[in-house]
Simulated scan of single mutants.
Amino acid sequence: MKKYFLIILLTVATTARLFAQDNKSQLTALILEKDSLFWQAYNTCDLKGLAGFFSDSVEFYHDKGGITLGLDALLASMKDGLCKQPDEFHLRREAVPGTVKVFPMEKNEVIYGAIISGEHYFYINKKGAPEHRDGWAKFTHLWLKQNGQWKMTRVLSYDHAPAPYLSTRKAITLPADVLRAYAGKYKGPQTGVAEISAGEDALLVTAYGKQFAIYPEKQGVFFMKERDLTFEFVNGNKLLVKEKGEVAEELVKE
């Protein structure tokens, strides 16, 4: 009899563990789905849609912008800030792959909330200019189940820093005589004199007492691998330096 009783206890315990694991898996999927929908609304400045994800008493903590208390204040800050003129300027958020995790919150084995945290990038969209990745930060959001609905009640945005630059440009190979044709001294109002010489597969630029390489993306256009800088040679006597797609300086060949 004792043997069968122990078997029943083990079966019940195993079933309870499996049930708890299943509940947590469902919770993770639910919070990830809500998180995805929330950021879709953020990326499009859908303030009405955003309002539905927060509790009325939401608290927002930003390590650069301070504390914002309450849903009305939070929406007002977005309306007057990031979403003031979304057609002219807005941010797009994108999670850093592999960093987002969900942590169930429970009491007496009953789930009452969840924390989602991770890292993300922010891309600047400015009218007339190509989108570029600008910032990086960490985030932690607390979701609570209130009156049968899941609401975001605490938002922490912190550890903000410039996003590391990752070039997506591909270098091509140019003949040595083509590379040599770009060599010479170029003078600009900011740089002063920059001396350009031909390397094996790139051009070598000496300016500000330092030397760096720029690689051919296509004939007449070169780029840096370390920064979002391009160098466009025009009409054989001009060099346009562009940062994030916008002209930063024009140099003339001496």
Score class of each variant (00 low, 15 high):
Met1Glu: 12
Met1Phe: 00
Met1Gly: 14
Lys3Val: 09
Leu9Glu: 02
Thr14Asn: 08
Leu18Tyr: 03
Gln21Tyr: 02
Asp22Met: 08
Lys24Arg: 14
Thr28Ala: 13
Leu30Tyr: 09
Ile31Met: 05
Ile31Gly: 00
Lys34Pro: 03
Asp35Cys: 10
Phe38Trp: 11
Phe38Tyr: 12
Tyr42Thr: 07
Leu50Asn: 01
Val58Met: 10
Glu59Trp: 05
Glu59Ile: 09
His62Pro: 14
Asp63Arg: 06
Ile67Arg: 06
Gly70Val: 05
Asp72Leu: 12
Ala76Arg: 00
Ala76Asp: 09
Met78Gln: 09
Gly81Gln: 06
Pro86Gln: 03
Leu91Gln: 08
Glu119Cys: 00
Glu119Lys: 10
Tyr121Phe: 03
Phe122Thr: 00
Lys126Glu: 06
Lys127Ala: 06
Ala129Glu: 13
His132Val: 15
Asp134Glu: 13
Ala137Val: 11
Lys138His: 15
Phe139Gly: 00
His141Gly: 14
Leu142Lys: 11
Trp143Ser: 02
Gln149Leu: 15
Lys151Asn: 02
Thr153Ile: 07
Arg154Asn: 10
Ser157Asp: 15
Tyr158Val: 15
Tyr158Gln: 14
His160Asp: 08
Tyr165Ala: 07
Leu174Asn: 01
Arg180Pro: 02
Ala181Glu: 07
Ala183Val: 03
Lys185Ile: 12
Lys187Asp: 07
Lys187Glu: 11
Pro189Asp: 05
Gln190Asp: 11
Gly192Pro: 13
Gly192Ala: 09
Ile196Arg: 02
Ser197Met: 11
Gly199Tyr: 15
Ala202Gln: 12
Leu204Thr: 12
Phe212Thr: 13
Gly220Thr: 00
Met224Thr: 09
Met224Gln: 09
Arg227Ala: 15
Leu229Ser: 08
Val234Phe: 10
Asn235Val: 11
Lys238Phe: 13
